[in-house]
């Protein structure tokens, strides 16, 4: 496991981001430096509106920084065009959100398969099914593959969402307050499932308000005045 943590996966240096408000621009991030290694888990704490989600959206290539440098592996992706960013989001990142964002009309398996049916490469039906079942098994709900979200509990739904994030075997798992809508016990279960992904060398960045959950991570950082400490 120690060997897995050696190589730097994400390197952010001097990242700045300013949002255009109604009155005047508001600086959210002002020179953020962050390094995440393979297999490492990082918790980011901070007040509401401190820019935690903005930082996560920059790491996940949902948005681009105004300044600074972003290196993924050995590749500078600071100013990546959208088409290539979509490819990287598919290949390198897995996302878990506070709300589960499962499609009600699809089964758990189909929701997980959504990450495979995204136009980035093609998997045969058989291969897709095997990958989906493996991902569901990884989070312990393979037996619920054919259930639709309305029939699942909050914790089960979040685990389906985690399986969706893991199904492409990403190098980085980004979780934005994944336990925010869950009770403590279920939240703990979900965090454990997320942490288990790091055992395979996956980097984990967890944004949370919960200090107990943060304490389970390898590193705990706090975002304050646009800077990580």
């Amino acid at each position: 496991m120690t060997a897995l943590i050696q190589s730097p996966l994400i390197q952010l240096s001097g990242i700045t981001k300013t949002l255009k408000g109604q009155d005047e621009p508001r600086t959210i991030l002002s020179g953020v430096d962050l390094t995440v290694h393979s297999g490492q888990s990082v918790a980011i704490l901070g007040r509401s509106g401190s820019g935690k989600s903005t930082l996560l959206s920059l790491i996940g290539l949902f948005d681009r920084p105004d300044g600074g440098q972003y290196i993924l592996g050995e590749r500078d992706i600071t100013k990546l065009p959208e088409r290539k960013a979509a490819q990287l989001r598919s290949a390198e990142f897995g996302f878990v959100f506070q709300r589960f964002f499962l499609l009600k009309h699809l089964t758990a398996a189909q929701n997980v398969a959504m990450a495979l049916v995204n136009g980035q490469g093609w998997h045969s039906r058989r291969k897709r099914k095997a990958k989906v079942l493996a991902a569901l098994d990884q989070v312990g709900i393979a037996h619920l593959a054919k259930h639709k979200p309305p029939r699942l509990s909050g914790g089960e739904q979040q685990r389906v969402a985690i399986a969706r994030a893991l199904v492409r075997e990403p190098r980085v798992l980004l979780a934005d307050e994944p336990t925010g809508a869950l009770d403590t016990e279920t939240g703990n279960l979900v965090v454990d499932v997320l942490l288990s992904a790091t055992h395979r060398g996956c980097g984990l960045v967890l944004v949370t308000h919960d200090h107990d959950h943060a304490a389970k991570m390898g590193r705990v950082l706090s975002l304050h005045d646009g800077k990580l400490a």
Binding site: G60, F62, E82, R83, A86, Q87, R89, S90, A91, F95, F101, L103, M114, A115, N118, G119, Q120, R164, R168
Partner: peptide, 16 residues
């Protein structure tokens, strides 16, 4: 809207 945003998040391109 949320479904489409999510699909983009998991790597679906704008064109697709």
């Amino acid at each position: 809207i949320e479904e489409f945003a999510l699909r983009r998040a998991v790597g679906t391109s704008r064109m697709l």
